[in-house]
Design a protein around this nucleic acid. Structure first.
Lengths: 161, 161
DNA sequence: CTGCCTGCAAAGGATTTGCACTCAT
DNA sequence: ATGAGTGCAAATCCTTTGCAGGCAG
């Protein structure tokens, strides 16, 4: 017998459960739409996918057909604001979303960075510390605090060279 | 007596003249629209401005009112393709354009990089070598060739801290 | 209950495209 | 003359918003 799809499920990953808890403790409401969005993002993370709002919308629609596209955008906005979800602006085209990295070590405070191949469009995760030297210089020379997570660097990936 | 606005002018900067020459030698045609776009970009560069396509369009309209918005986009696309103009994708919002940096020393091959304040929107130019360590790591570890010029890094500028 | 969230539809900004025409070469 | 470039309008893509009703708390 299948489980209901609009509430907690036994298959929910610890990370998902934590995300929901964090959302709740931020005073945000747990709705079927938001649950579905989080579940989609959690599943995507396991396969290292980076989904656009539209892709998230269509996957959400599989589980919760009644959820409107606009609601997905609004849900994502709320989730981002709370910090449960991060979004990355890709060059020119749509933004992609994923669950915010949780820090095993609370030392460095940032999630992973992204690079995108302008040829094939693929998004590649890179360790956050790769931008550390850049962040340091910007801080020292310009007083600029770099958000290493927020934008994708563009270039050409190995396969497209 | 004013000079005509649809052809070379005595006030045209050497850099503009070179850009036009390069455009011509690429087999592209020199039209009033393209001339006007280049002139706007040249003027903007002198004041360290980064213009969006729309801003370029309205400035072009002052000199050449008959030039259509769509033509500005198409002109910019051609200019970018030829390499005379570079465009930078800013976080989420519109792309900005500027004349491609010319290299005094042909050693390093890249123009300047950009960072943008997500609070006030300001775009700051930074020396291209700031991304060199990042480019090196991406190349070595992923075979990814970084286009240091193409995307803006996001963060918070000193004034908005 | 109360108001945060939602569904719907419609607007919005940025950019692109189909088509016929025009002008740089 | 000939096709690269253009003007125009309409389409596209991604996202946001106004409003009335609905469900989480």
């Amino acid at each position: 017998m299948p489980e209901r799809e609009d509430g907690p499920r036994s298959g929910d990953s610890p990370r998902l459960v934590r995300a929901v808890a964090r959302l709740r403790s931020s005073g945000e409401r747990i709705t079927p739409a938001r649950y579905a969005v989080l579940r989609v993002l959690d599943a995507a993370d396991r396969s290292d996918e980076h989904l656009t709002a539209e892709q998230i919308g269509s996957r959400v629609a599989e589980a919760e057909p009644s959820v409107h596209r606009a609601t997905v955008y609004r849900s994502l906005a709320s989730l981002v604001e709370v910090g449960v979800v991060s979004h990355v602006h890709l060059g020119g085209s749509a933004a992609v979303y994923h669950l915010t990295d949780e820090r095993p070590s609370p030392a460095t405070a940032l999630g992973h960075a992204h690079v995108q191949c302008s040829s094939c469009g693929r998004v590649i995760d890179v360790p956050p510390d790769i931008l550390e030297p850049v962040a340091a210089r910007l801080r020292d020379e310009l007083g600029f605090r770099l958000a290493t997570t927020h934008a994708a660097l563009l270039g050409t990936c190995r396969d497209c060279t």
